[in-house]
């Protein structure tokens, strides 16, 4: 349950949402990724409020969001490379270039050697890395990663930090969530902005960016392709809520 959360993430920015289990992190990320709809409030992505879109339009939003969550849902009967390529296929990437991009994404999480292996033969840790590579592939305009370092070893956790930072450096808006303070610290050290979430509310530091931003209405008019923001669940008066604007 989210309560009055207003959060903006712009292109080239890395935001880490930290909170204890059941604090609403996963819900917030699901809403941001278009996997769930808020009962009230707005979810702005590329100048559109996705919360008010018709269901038939949601796939066209989701395909521009790289989403990773604990389920790491993959197609077992396909190879790791095929799984990563499928995200690019949905986005309309040409078949001729998708393979190289997918291998790049696997290389970003040092899993290139898994490319031709069937997912069914991978360990749970390897599956998580492949799922993360799929979310990173492209990279997408918005990358949403829920506990991407959970159940991974130290090396892999550091690798995930660098992979997210790399996606950010490529211009993606990166939103990650974790209950692990040490890992959140590592993301902050890599240039990330920390948000603390407790019982569905943002506490401590302001959820919005430090840079002055236009209003939501202005952001919508700007149609900035990389900007995204969430207001939920009581989302009062979003027209007055500030948000960050991404590069055009």
């Amino acid at each position: 349950m989210l309560d009055g959360v207003t959060l903006g993430v712009s292109g080239g920015e890395l935001v880490v949402v930290e909170g204890s289990p059941a604090s609403g992190k996963s819900t917030l990320l699901e809403v941001a990724a278009g996997a769930r709809l808020p009962e009230r409030g707005a979810v702005w992505f590329a100048g559109r409020n996705t919360a008010t879109l018709q269901r038939a339009s949601l796939p066209f939003v989701r395909r521009n969001i790289g989403y990773y969550n604990a389920d790491a849902l993959l197609v077992d009967e396909d190879s790791a490379l095929d799984n990563v390529m499928s995200a690019l296929a949905v986005r309309g990437e040409a078949l001729s270039t998708a393979g190289a991009r997918a291998r790049d994404a696997l290389a970003a999480v040092r899993s290139q050697e898994l490319a031709d292996r069937l997912v069914s033969s991978l360990s749970s840790g390897q599956r998580r890395l492949v799922a993360l590579a799929r979310a990173l592939a492209g990279p997408p305009p918005l990358l949403v990663a829920d506990e991407p370092a959970a159940l991974l070893g130290e090396d892999a956790r550091a690798l995930v930090v660098s992979a997210l930072a790399r996606a950010r450096d490529f211009g993606a808006a990166v939103l990650a969530a974790t209950a692990d303070t040490a890992w959140a610290d590592a993301l902050v050290a890599a240039g990330g902005r920390r948000i603390n979430l407790c019982e569905g509310r943002i506490v401590g530091a302001p959820a919005i960016g430090l840079v002055p931003s236009p209003t939501m209405a202005e952001a919508r008019e700007d149609e900035g392709p990389w900007s995204g923001s969430v207001e939920s669940a009581n989302g009062e008066d979003h027209e007055k809520a500030p948000a960050l604007k991404g590069p055009r």
């Binding site: 796939p59 066209f60 989701r62 849902l73 993959l74 197609v75 077992d76 799984n83 949905v90 799929r134």
Partner: peptide, 17 residues
């Protein structure tokens, strides 16, 4: 089962029905 998993993955990735 296998078809449903593939469909769930593709839905999550933003593929149209």
């Amino acid at each position: 089962g296998a078809v449903a998993t593939r469909a769930a993955v593709l839905t999550q990735l933003g593929e149209t029905p």
